[in-house]
Amino acid sequence: MTLSSLLLHPVRLRVVQTFLGRGELTTAALGRHLADVPSATLYRHVNALLEAGVLEVVDERKVRGAVERTLVLRTARASLGPDEAAAMTAEEHRRAFAVFVAGLIGDLDRYLARGDQDLARDRVGYRQYAAHLTDEEMDDFVADLRAVIEPRLELAPGPGRRRRLVSHVLMPDAD
């Protein structure tokens, strides 16, 4: 199985995204975060990610006669590199983007299902901008985004901190 087909399955993508910003998770904690995924399905996909080296077991302990594993995401194995992305067909990119967008819709649905949503209070937003940039200006823009985002990815959970999802899409206009 290619890395792209492994990662671009909706359940496996959610498993990977659940680890982002969380560090280690036990299998029980992962199950709580993905409560809408049946346990057997979740464990099957976790095992596929373990076999591929995307997840790693960092601890095991007995809990009521069963072995509970503590897992960590191996971030370097959890994303496609430029060579893998370049090798994908147009149809594979369409499927990958559809899985990505469906994941965003699912995230919003789960947020809205809480019933207490307040987009202003929770700092929820989505919008699209259009900018006229040369390739060099676009490279600078991406570097600027990284400079803003990356230090914040290192912040540990703590009082007043809430896990927030930041997603972005960059593409040229079709014309």
Rank of each mutant, 00 (worst) to 15 (best):
A78H: 01
A131S: 06
Y126I: 08
H45W: 08
A40T: 07
F100W: 10
V72M: 12
R77N: 13
T89L: 06
D83P: 02
A120F: 13
E84D: 08
Y129S: 07
I149R: 12
R64K: 15
M88G: 02
D144P: 00
E154F: 00
R127G: 15
V37Y: 02
V148A: 14
E84M: 09
F97A: 08
Y126Q: 11
R123Y: 11
D139V: 02
R121I: 01
V63T: 11
A87Y: 05
P38H: 05
A66S: 13
S79D: 11
E150D: 13
A113F: 03
H93S: 04
L34W: 05
T41D: 12
R123N: 13
T70D: 04
Y111L: 13
M138D: 01
G81W: 03
R64M: 06
D36C: 06
A48Q: 13
V142G: 01
A130N: 06
A102W: 03
H132V: 10
D135G: 14
V148S: 11
L55G: 02
R69D: 10
R152S: 00
T134P: 01
L49G: 05
G115N: 08
R127S: 11
D140C: 06
G103V: 00
M88N: 00
E136S: 10
G81T: 13
G31R: 01
A35S: 14
R77I: 04
R74P: 01
A96M: 11
L119G: 08
L30Y: 02
V72I: 15
A130G: 10
A29E: 10
V58Y: 08
L145I: 07
E56T: 09
R61A: 14
D144M: 08
A87V: 07
I105P: 00
A143C: 02
D109W: 03
T75K: 07
S79Q: 12
T89A: 08
A28Q: 10
P38Q: 09
A78M: 06
M88S: 02
T70C: 04
Q117G: 15
Q128P: 00
V142A: 02
R32V: 05
A98G: 02
D107I: 04
L50A: 06
H132A: 14
H33R: 10
P157Q: 12
V148G: 02
P157V: 03
E92G: 08
N47Q: 14
G106D: 09
E150P: 02
I149L: 15
A120T: 15
L155I: 14
G65M: 12
Q128V: 14
L145K: 05
L42P: 02
L153M: 15
A98Q: 12
V37R: 01
L119A: 15
L155V: 12
A156G: 03
A86W: 05
R61W: 09
R114L: 12
F100K: 01
H45P: 00
M88D: 00
A87H: 04
E136Q: 10
N47W: 06
A131G: 00
A102Y: 03
H93E: 05
E154D: 13
D144C: 05
D83R: 12
V148M: 12
A143I: 00
Y111W: 15
Y129A: 04
R146E: 12
R121K: 15
D144E: 15
A130K: 08
L55M: 10
R152A: 07
R32K: 11
A28W: 10
A130F: 11
L104G: 07
R152V: 01
R123K: 14
L80E: 02
V124C: 08
V37K: 04
F100P: 00
A96V: 05
A98Y: 03
